Computed example of a mutant assay.
Amino acid sequence: MVGGREVEGGWPARNVGRVAGPGTPRRATVHDVAAAAGVSRGTVNRVLNGGYVSADARTAIEAAIAMVGYVPNTAARNLARRRSQAIGFIALEDPALLLEDPNIGAIMIGANEVLSLADQQMVSLVIDSDRDTQRVSRYLSGGFVDGAIIVSARSHDPITRLIAQIGLPACFVGHPPDLDRGIPYVGIDNTGSARAITERLLATGRRRIGMIAAALDRDSGADRLTGFREALGPHFDPALVAEIPLYDYAYGVKGMRALLDREPGIDGVFAASDAVAAGALESLREAGRRVPEDVGIVGFDDSSWALRTQPPLSTVHQPARDVGRNAAELVLLQLRGKDPVPECIVLESPVVWRHSA
């Protein structure tokens, strides 16, 4: 007994229980922690907010927190600090593609690794309609997230315009043509990498080379077409470019069929992504064309698609997980408001040569 009270493990029992009355649960408070640790509320608050206290006081407070089952009310603390401790992850893609595209998944995982270490919650925001755009716009404007990572932004997208207008700390993955210069981006050199792999395809002796060009309404697709055109120079034939809307297997099937209809003698193909290349391989098999003997084909991304095809795809390695990590770091830098924030980070994306060409 201590002062007429039972003791468990050296602590007054009244601090162990979290009840206001029989059968009525009560949330443990800072008062409970302070009483159990034998310190002031201010000392407890300094520990909770990352301030300095003596080692003995910190040890006592941490033990008291565990004993009374105290869980900080982060909602109240964040309201006082005007912070949500959440970062929005906005992928402006067709929702079906979100589930199929391994690159978006890798970007998301990389971003979450960094945000988790910073005690930030990543919130995924899906936009599939004008109604979604309005809803997400209200959400972002309402202060429910402290920042945003935007993937696959298109030119003049209303969400990206809003983010610039409200000054939300943000980072683009890739660089839309109308990129606000106040918002940094992380990406790769899509133009240079597309040029490099097309030149490698040319070096195998192919002469009638076409492209299945996807997502030309965003920077990645447009830049890959630019690199392809630069590599071919005067041999570029616009009739040998099949345009498709998405980096999607089914569209790869359709794009390859279109190229075969236009030029039955085609002997080389640059597909704008590995998923598109996998679909193109299906069409080539249907047409009785051997890869790489009759047609050499290359992709882009070095995703899981590249190793699932037969033969394995020659492609460009896109460091998607590192892209996500760097994007999250740039958002956190803006939130800290101390260190200079780079305007952009461009990661290496080398050619990976396999058997498809």
Rank of each mutant, 00 (worst) to 15 (best):
G227S: 08
A231T: 08
L232C: 11
G233P: 11
P234E: 09
P234R: 12
F236R: 07
L240C: 09
V241G: 02
V241D: 05
E243C: 07
E243R: 14
Y247W: 14
Y247P: 05
D248Q: 14
K254F: 06
M256F: 07
A258T: 10
E263S: 14
E263C: 15
P264Y: 12
I266F: 08
F270E: 00
S273T: 02
S273D: 01
D274C: 07
D274L: 05
D274E: 10
A275F: 05
A277D: 06
A278L: 11
A278P: 06
S283C: 06
R285H: 14
R285G: 10
R289I: 13
E293I: 06
D294H: 15
G296R: 05
G296K: 05
I297F: 07
I297H: 05
G299I: 07
D301C: 02
D302W: 03
D302T: 07
S304R: 14
S304M: 12
S304C: 06
W305R: 02
W305C: 00
W305H: 10
A306V: 03
R308Q: 13
T315P: 00
V316C: 01
V316F: 00
Q318P: 00
P319H: 05
G324N: 02
G324L: 04
R325C: 02
N326G: 01
N326E: 12
A328Q: 02
A328F: 01
A328Y: 01
V331G: 03
L332V: 07
